[in-house]
Design a protein around this nucleic acid. Structure first.
Lengths: 236, 236
DNA sequence: CATGCCTGAAATGAATCCAATCTTGCGTTG
DNA sequence: CAACGCAAGATTGGATTCATTTCAGGCATG
């Protein structure tokens, strides 16, 4: 019953040419193909995509708004390096938002929605199995977004999207285990709860899933001297 | 030649020249000085601020990311006109997030925080009393942001900031009463609860406050023929 | 008289150009 | 030999210029 999803049909036709560059860079960052802290020179990117710096700058500005890159005046753009505090806050925010959204999704989920989610899980599983960790991370984020979409909350979907993106960056920086991206079974249990329209289970499973995710990263404040002094003096 | 604006000295790395235009336009939009749907021509704004279209476009792109303006390809930028569905979703999102944040704030609030909040309420009260409705709306938003700041959640603060901005726009479109911006007594009660470190009260007061806000706007879907056909055929 | 096409003006999209700033490396000097 | 200073190169910040699209008005036509 998606009565003329005007949100995307009319409202957001954000088709500019820089979105291509934006999407490309975003995918590369989230898939850990570009390490945090890497400089992103405008000239170089312009060469890669055969466009002028104008479009590159537009894309970089958009990524900066998403906090995936950091713009330093007169110095250029760098892949963002979230601090541990930011890392903690991102997961705290998700812990506040996503369980409720999962409950909302469970309340209204239809068989077609469940089918879509399960199909999604398959792809995710395949990506993990094939060792395509970059794809796995992005598919995991997509899964969380999918739940918000089922809840019919496009604004919360956007917020969760943003938080998941930042989570991917955080994981690439602070992950302690190699399987930090969502384990399949947690996602499976979540889908089952949503399929049974059990709001309570969905909410609790999402909460514990997020706790689990957080436990996989090292968010302890590093009071001891980090590797490089230069990092400290430049404000990390 | 009035440069000498060292951003890194202040630690504010997000400062470029277009932020001036961004802040200005944002304030004007939130204060309802510019009506939703108004076109924002690049040339005109460039003249106003005596800069080239380059900087204007950067500011407009940032505002578009905040969903305060809508960019239409080859047509230009317009002050956003949130749909009723968006309006409802914004307040639903706030209802999910803000009560929890209020509880967190109540848990950690110190006397100094309370003092700041009360000082804030004074300004808000004065603005309402003086009939400066534009200022009142912005101060009301600032109040909600302040609570998130007390909670020590900078990321949630950003999210709430964004939602409050959109709320201001929504109120300017769909407000039914003239006092739709937060009534002072609701805010006062909230501060009292936070001052007493009562998480439960703070959470519940915030919830009812948001319900109250939502009740002040008309979010009923207009299934009946809206005034002008032209509106429908152009999408919304 | 209404409809459709066509042309010119105006605004946006994007590339190029100039200025300002930072970085790097060499040479000078104590 | 180390440290400071300075100049050349590289990179970003912003303005200008060219191309493309849309919009408005007028003219021709059915």
């Amino acid at each position: 019953m998606l009565k003329a999803n005007d949100d995307r049909a009319t409202g957001n036709v954000t088709s500019a040419r820089w979105t291509q560059i934006y999407d490309d860079l975003k995918a590369a960052i989230l898939a850990h193909a570009i390490a945090p802290g890497t400089k992103l020179p405008e000239d170089e990117l312009g060469d890669v995509y055969s466009v002028s710096r104008t479009l590159v700058r537009a894309a970089l500005q958009a990524l900066a708004h998403d906090r995936l890159v950091q713009l330093e005046p007169n110095r250029g753009a760098f892949v963002a390096k979230p601090t541990k505090r930011e890392a903690r806050e991102v997961f705290e925010a998700r812990a506040i938002i996503e369980p409720k959204v999962a409950a909302m999704a469970a309340a209204v989920a239809k068989p077609a929605d469940i089918k879509l989610l399960r199909k999604h899980l398959d792809e995710e599983h395949k990506a993990i199995h094939d060792g395509r960790q970059g794809d796995a991370i992005m598919l995991s984020a997509r899964f969380h977004e999918g739940i918000a979409e089922i809840a019919g909350q496009s604004i919360l979907t956007e917020i969760i999207q943003s938080l998941c993106s930042r989570s991917a960056l955080i994981i690439s920086l602070y992950s302690r285990r190699s399987d930090t991206f969502c384990e399949s079974h947690a996602h499976h249990a979540l889908v089952d709860a949503i399929a049974k329209n059990s709001e309570k289970d969905a909410s609790e499973l999402m909460t514990s899933h997020l706790v689990d995710l957080l436990s996989g990263i090292d968010v302890s404040e590093n009071l001891a001297p980090p590797r490089k002094l230069s990092e400290i003096l430049r404000g990390q």
